[in-house]
Design a binder for these strands. Structure first.
Length: 506
RNA sequence: GGCGACGUAGCUCAGUUGGUUAGAGCAUCGGAAUCAUAAUCCGGGUGUCCGGGGUUCAAGUCCCUGCGUCGCUACCA
């Protein structure tokens, strides 16, 4: 038992020690094999490598892979009733079994082997940093021990954390955005875009509704949506929707296209390196190039005297949109599909099809690619967040009823803090010298995060003084300070009027 | 305290193996344009690259140190 005098937070009961049997994964046995395997992963992200090396250097420990629970995946062995697999032992196996299920569904039950047993397969796990050890230590160790040679993870590009309005997300505190709620108000495509544009790839990043609105309005709508709209409307108005390829491109058109292809190539490279954020910026920059080109070639002027020139502008803009419709698909698939439909292009295409410039674009129906979000909608989201914040402590779990005598067992007195200092090697604890009337005592209190020692001196606070003394960090604590705890805040209590130290509370 | 990171423009963030006058978007100010979803385009930056040392011909980038923030971890009787 590692815990010191533990009690249940819900019932206040003391836990009962029970004997049980568990199965363990013998991780230390795999250390050498894991190390030499990880040595080949010099292309992994530094944050991932650092994390694993930390684990390895501290020494791997045997890890229980079973739990005593009445739900979960049962152990496929005899006499194991009531035992289930530990979630991070069975979850990765799901990757394999779902492939098998898929193979069976398509009528080729052996097909899964093409992936799991082929050395050329690149298995890539996308996850948040808290999931690194399961996919880089435990899961590979499981695979290594199999008779069949399964492929090991090729890369584990773990991301950092995404904060919400500057604060760490927490589902238990309801400080989060639930996808199903989000979808009630906005198109999921917008979330995909904003998350891609601001993914915590190299460090924690922040999601704020204001920023969400700005990105949807300024980028998706004003830059990309408007480029499509102005191009299409113009084509419709002056060319009846038919935009044909010029026999020979002007220099301006050529250099513009070159630049676009250059960006597109970089976009592909960024995707391959899991730099979704960079890729997103790149394809949006292509739309910016398109807008600039549109402005510089002034089709609204050339259309009057040199109609061919105006047509070239539109043709290039359509081509730019066509290229974007391919390379932005991983991030905003629905919008890009609609863009292709408006361009009268096939839905079925490959990344390489960028280079295929059609003879003609046919614009028929024009619809908005994206919609803007107005301030009211964002205010609504802030209201929802606010409601949640006040909703954070819904009902208290009450402790069992006690008798008056139980309460009377406690001796609580007002103590005056005489001295306060930090305890070295600790960042939560303060050592206090207090006067409880006719005697002085030493108290260790875990309030360092909330109070500076110098601000405590002279304060009068309630203390539980007849609690059994206990050594903490080598110091004997002879009483317990009482304070109110509210989520991330902690407040000491003060008597309403000045009373002498030693006054008893009843 | 130990381990791991982070600190770049008002805001959100880029900055490849150290190499010209440190960048983008937003915001802000000024201008152009009128095809377009009041959209677009051009121009405007005195940033102690957290502070202080050091290595180097050269440091936002490497090393040491201090401060601050965050995560994991131990001690909140």
């Amino acid at each position: 038992m590692d815990l010191i005098e533990p009690v249940s937070k819900l019932s206040g009961d003391k836990p009962v020690i029970k004997e049980t049997t568990h199965w363990y994964l013998d991780l230390p046995k795999f250390e050498q094999e894991l190390r030499s395997w990880l040595k080949t992963k010099d292309y992994w992200k530094d944050n991932v490598k650092n994390f694993i090396m930390g684990w390895l250097d501290e020494g791997l420990k045997q890890r229980a892979i079973t739990r005593d629970l009445d739900w979960g995946v049962p152990i496929p062995l005899e006499n194991t009733e009531g035992k289930v697999l530990y979630v991070w032992f069975d979850a990765p196996i799901g990757y394999l079994s779902s492939t098998k299920e898929w193979a069976e569904k398509i009528g080729e039950p052996e097909k899964w082997k093409d992936y799991w047993l082929d050395k050329k397969t690149k298995m890539i796990h996308f996850l948040g940093k808290d999931n690194i050890p399961f996919h880089t230590i435990i899961w590979p160790a499981m695979l290594m021990e199999q008779k069949q040679q399964f492929v090991l993870p090729y890369d584990v590009p773990a991301n950092e954390y995404l904060n919400l309005e500057g604060k760490k997300m927490s589902t238990s505190r309801n400080w989060t955005v639930w996808v199903e709620d989000f979808l009630k108000y906005f198109d999921g495509e917008y979330l995909r875009y904003v998350l891609a544009a601001n993914a915590p790839e190299s460090k924690d990043s922040d999601f704020s509704w204001k920023d969400f609105q700005a990105k949807v309005n300024n980028e998706l709508n004003n830059v990309l949506g408007n480029l499509a709209n102005r191009t299409f409307v113009f084509s419709k108005k002056y060319f009846d929707g038919y935009v044909t390829r010029p026999d020979k491109l002007s220099k301006k058109a050529e250099t513009t296209l070159e630049k676009v292809f250059g960006h597109a190539k970089k976009t592909g490279k960024a995707f391959k390196n899991y730099q979704v954020r960079k890729a997103t910026k790149l394809f949006m920059d292509i739309a910016r190039i398109g807008n600039r080109y549109f402005d510089e070639t002034k089709p609204w002027e050339t259309v009057k005297q040199e109609k061919k020139k105006a047509e070239e502008t539109l043709y290039i803009c359509c081509s730019i949109l066509r290229i974007i419709s391919i390379i932005a698909t991983p991030v905003i698939p629905k919008g890009m599909k609609r863009l292709r439909l408006m361009l009268d292009l096939k839905d079925n295409y490959l990344w390489e099809d960028q280079a295929k410039n059609p003879k003609e674009y046919q614009i028929d129906k024009i619809e908005r690619l994206f919609e803007k979000i107005d301030d009211k909608e964002i205010e609504k989201q802030y209201e929802i967040l606010g409601d949640r914040r006040s909703d954070q402590n819904p009902q208290h779990e009450h402790k069992p009823e006690i008798q008056f005598e139980d309460f009377m067992k406690m001796e609580i007195r007002i103590a005056k803090i005489l001295k306060a200092e930090k305890i070295k090697k600790s960042n939560k604890l303060l050592k206090l010298e207090v006067n409880i009337g006719n005697e002085e005592r030493t108290v260790v209190a875990g309030i360092s995060k909330y109070y500076k020692p110098e601000n405590l001196i002279g304060k009068k606070v309630p203390m539980l003084v007849n609690l059994k003394a206990r050594k903490v960090m080598g110091i004997e604590s002879q009483a317990m300070i009482l304070a109110a705890e509210d989520k991330d805040e902690l407040a000491l209590l003060h008597p309403d009027k000045d009373v002498n130290e030693g006054s008893e509370i009843s």
